[in-house]
Simulated assay, not measured.
Amino acid sequence: MTSKLKYSEMIKAEAKRLGFLDCGISKATFLEEEAPRLEEWLKRGYQGEMKWMENHIDKRLDPRKLVDGAKSVVSVILNYYPEETQKHPDAPKIAKYAYGEDYHFVIKRKLKELTEFIQTEIGEVSGRAFTDSAPVMDRAWAERSGLGWTGKHSLLLSKGTGSFYLIGELILDLDLEDDTPVADHCGSCTKCIDACPTNAIVAPKLVDGSKCISYLTIELKDQISPSFKDQMEGWAFGCDICQDVCPWNRFSKPTKVEEFSPHPEMLDMNKQDWQEITEDVFRKVFKKSAVKRAKYAGLKQNIDFLKPTY
């Protein structure tokens, strides 16, 4: 066994021990196929007000510009699928990834442990950890490392586990054994495209971010346009519609990551509880959640916008 293969297997085994659903490796190189797609996506204005998507394009497409001497991208995925969901069907809905602790912190902690393992067991290795917080194309690297394929909703999909997981990376100056991408298994299915109430999925694997409910309820800082009034389907923070209808998600299993356990009060909140939510309740229920990104005023604005459509 070569040292590349040996180290790769060690890293994957440790990643799974730390609770990651899976781990894959790809060569740190320029994302040649993604470059024209990203350029076209930005040209069409699909980023909406997410102007940060227009920054650091060179780093977004080449990890060697983020980490000196980068040779490998170690991608990991972490399951967040909850055992229980919100109990009241007429209550404003929160995306499942935001039920528990903010995934940025959870994944970063685990990646820090993985980095320490690598440096202890392999030697002097430099690199950086990322999870949706820097100019890194997470899905592209996860796809290259064989963790899944890009579904028509533009999210990463796996035959065995669906899409309810989050992605993180270690970009390292360590030469490792590359994995092989997997085949696309969406076939002729268009359930995600058909189900999107705002028609944000404009073509297979192409999403107009400015129409996506997740964008409207999280990234958009202005008032949501009245044109979306009857299209929100009760979502107050994020949206899971395209994932909920995906046939591959019938294989989703509840996460074992304790940090993703939802606050029990949140699951029990009914329509009236949400409409009358106070800042104190918001701080208590979403103390560690990604919902804090919207802040109390933003979440309240989203809930008020839904009236009387839920």
Rank of each mutant, 00 (worst) to 15 (best):
Q243D: 09
K71L: 15
S154P: 11
V73F: 09
F260K: 00
P82F: 09
S3N: 10
M53L: 13
V136Y: 01
S210I: 00
E9A: 08
I224F: 09
L42E: 00
D58A: 15
M53F: 06
T85V: 15
M10S: 07
C242A: 15
Y97W: 13
K221T: 11
L220Y: 04
M10C: 06
G146K: 02
S72A: 14
F105I: 05
A129C: 07
V74E: 03
W248I: 09
A134S: 13
G146V: 03
K205Q: 14
L38K: 01
K87I: 10
A236P: 02
F117W: 10
G187H: 08
T85A: 13
K71V: 10
L166T: 02
T198W: 13
I122G: 02
L147Q: 10
C246A: 11
I218S: 05
E113G: 02
T2F: 11
S145Y: 04
A35E: 08
K253M: 14
V257I: 15
M53Q: 07
E258G: 03
G238F: 07
V202N: 11
L299G: 04
L155M: 12
L155C: 05
R17Q: 07
Q275H: 08
E169V: 02
L21T: 04
F20W: 09
K256P: 04
K87N: 09
P197T: 10
P254T: 06
H104P: 06
Y103C: 07
D102Q: 01
A13F: 07
L306N: 06
F305P: 07
K4A: 11
V257W: 01
L220Q: 12
E121Q: 11
V207C: 13
T198R: 06
K51H: 09
E258Y: 10
V125W: 03
T161N: 13
M1Y: 13
K211H: 15
K110S: 00
E116G: 06
E40M: 12
I57K: 12
G298M: 05
W52N: 10
M137T: 02
P92K: 08
F286D: 01
E32A: 06
P82K: 06
R17G: 03
S133C: 12
R283S: 14
L306P: 02
W141Y: 15
N79G: 11
V74G: 05
K108G: 04
D244L: 15
D22S: 05
V106P: 00
D175R: 05
V202E: 14
T115D: 09
G234V: 08
M137S: 05
H185Y: 08
N199V: 02
K110M: 14
I107T: 01
K51M: 11
C239M: 14
C212G: 12
D132R: 02
F20S: 01
K284N: 10
K71R: 15
Y97A: 15
T29S: 14
A70M: 10
T150K: 15
T115Y: 09
K108C: 08
L176V: 08
K152C: 04
K229R: 15
K27E: 06
K71F: 04
M137H: 06
W248S: 14
T255E: 05
G127C: 08
F282E: 12
